[in-house]
């Protein structure tokens, strides 16, 4: 069975035994979502990258204590969220959301005009997302970009599933106004 075909529980068991390939697979599978959380909290690509790495280091160190009460993904995202919030508190001043962070998000297209439009839309969405309160920002971005359920988002943000859903609705409602 390939590492990618394995479920997280099997990968965790192998990673606990020190198997490097299992660690690699866990990182490959989850680093994008952890980065998304960190970026939405910090609004800075470099800080988010550092926080993502720190989160994985903490997670690997704590892997022996992972009990599986929550899914591995939720657990990792929670560590990422706490790490990013901690990094945010240490930051002395709030930096503006770097637009260049958006450049890597565009879908590949041979049509330059469509790419330019898509870039503009991505930038507008990026800026609009950055204006939302953190919980709404996370509720929308994790639902849309990472496919998390409202229940998972609630677990991650230490709120109920209902709260996560309300935050998502409020976020979409504000984005609709901002992106008109």
């Amino acid at each position: 069975m390939s590492a990618l075909a394995e479920d997280d529980d099997a990968l965790v068991r192998r990673a606990r035994e020190g198997e490097a390939a299992a660690l690699d697979a866990l990182v490959s599978r989850h680093h994008r979502a952890v980065y998304e959380v960190a970026y939405r909290v910090l609004g800075d690509a470099d800080l988010a990258a550092d926080a993502t790495q720190d989160a994985f280091v903490k997670a690997i160190r704590a892997l022996a204590t992972f009990r599986g009460d929550a899914s591995l993904r939720t657990w990792l995202l929670r560590i990422g969220l706490n790490t990013a919030r901690s990094a945010g508190r240490k930051r002395t001043s709030q930096r503006e959301v770097p637009l260049e962070a958006v450049s890597g998000t565009l879908m590949a297209s041979s049509d330059l005009e469509r790419r330019a439009i898509a870039r503009t839309e991505a930038e507008r969405a990026e800026q609009a997302l950055a204006t939302l309160p953190e919980k709404q920002r996370l509720a929308v971005s994790l639902r849309v970009h990472q496919g998390l359920s409202h229940r998972e988002i609630g677990e991650l943000t230490d709120t109920s599933e209902g709260s996560a859903r309300v935050n998502y609705h409020l976020g979409i409602r504000k984005l609709r106004e901002l992106l008109k």
Binding site: A15, G18, A20, L23, D24, L26, V27, S28, H31, R32, Y35, E36, Y39, R40, A45, D46, A48, A49, T52, Q53, F56, V57, I60, R61, A101, V102, G104, T105, L106, M107, A118, E121, A122, E123, R124, A125, E126, A128, L129, V140, S141, V144, H145, L175, L179
Partner: peptide, 25 residues
């Protein structure tokens, strides 16, 4: 529109994390 604003990890981050994870392990 929002879906186009996914936060994409910078190039090389995955390798950086893999190396750090292996080191910690």
């Amino acid at each position: 529109i929002v879906s186009r604003a996914e936060a994409t990890p910078p190039e090389g981050l995955e390798d950086r994390i893999r190396a750090a994870a292996r080191e910690v392990a």
